[in-house]
Design a protein around this nucleic acid. Sequence first.
DNA 1: CCCTCGATCAC
DNA 2: CCTCATATCGAGGG
Length: 366
Amino acid sequence: MERIIGHLDLDYFYAQVEEVENPSLKERPVIVCVFSGRTEDSGVVSTANYRARELGAHSGMPIALAKKKLDGKNAAVIKMDHEKYEVVSNRIMEDIAQKVDTLEPTGIDEAFFDLTTSTGGDYAKAGKTAEAIKESILNNEHLTCSVGLGRSKVVAKLGSDTAKPGGLKVVKPETTMAFLNPLLVTKLYGVGPKTASTLEEMRVKTVGDLARIDLSKLDQRFGRKFGAYLLAAAKGEDDDPVRAGLEPTQFSRIVTLKRDTRDPGEAFDQLVAGIEYVHGKLVSSGKSFRTVTAIGILSDLSTKTKSKTFETPINDAARLRESARSLFDELSGVVDKDFRRVGLRVSGFTGIEDQTSLSEFLHPVG
DNA sequence: CCCTCGATCAC
DNA sequence: CCTCATATCGAGGG
């Protein structure tokens, strides 16, 4: 049966949560910022409310630059409080989960959901459910959101994007092509600056242009998997299912150093709290890892990593710290620039699936 | 298949 | 002036 998929996007989430907590902010430009701690204003804007956006302040923008844009505009500059937003997000997700067949959160402010079974494929019913979700979030949390409905994740996500802020976009199967064709490929999930510029070389500007390209051409330019995804996405036909209860497959923490340095000891000292944080995530989630990766972001913002995989799973802080320390020593030996930021990642959690040995792979039996 | 690493995307 | 976290892919090597 044809599926009905939804995508929910909470509008300018962090900034809107701050507005709810302090309604006088609604009249002002608001930026919620991640301060790196290097200097007074170093860091970036995480979220800007629409008033701030009208004045040219956007997410990803350096704080100092955003402040210039907002100078004299009575703007509120707020430090990000991730835990606060997480509490709100969790309440919302739990609420929505009751109203849909399957819920797949994809971030603190986003989720896909499946309505195929509960609506029997009826878009009128699905529209009612979407309205009910929006109402519920508005009544319970005083937050607005945008929702898209369509035959696949790609269509639903483009729908919510089109609907924002505050809207609902229903794209029935028969209107999918008319909806997709004129959109710019840069709107497609998975198409960032690099992919967009390659597509532009191929004279592909819109989703309609992309849908007419040969699969073999896309394979050749983008690789097998991504090429196939692009074509399917352009036709609104991706068959990626909505999955509930997905577990994270990695934890990481990256910190910005007080100053650039090549000394692994100096870098490591400033990462210790980050390592504790990663270890805390392991403990609270009851996971063990096999692979640990030291991450260095160098003075030219390029990334260099060094990883090590253990034979047996690990979850104790001491061995995590020690392995991190030696990886940073190794890393510092192969880089020719200072570290600007350093981080640690653990992955390869146990209990996900089992493996085949190399000899078994090379000499299969049966 | 497994491991390492860089690249890309997007939050 | 340039944060932070996560997922996924492909190449290269075993």
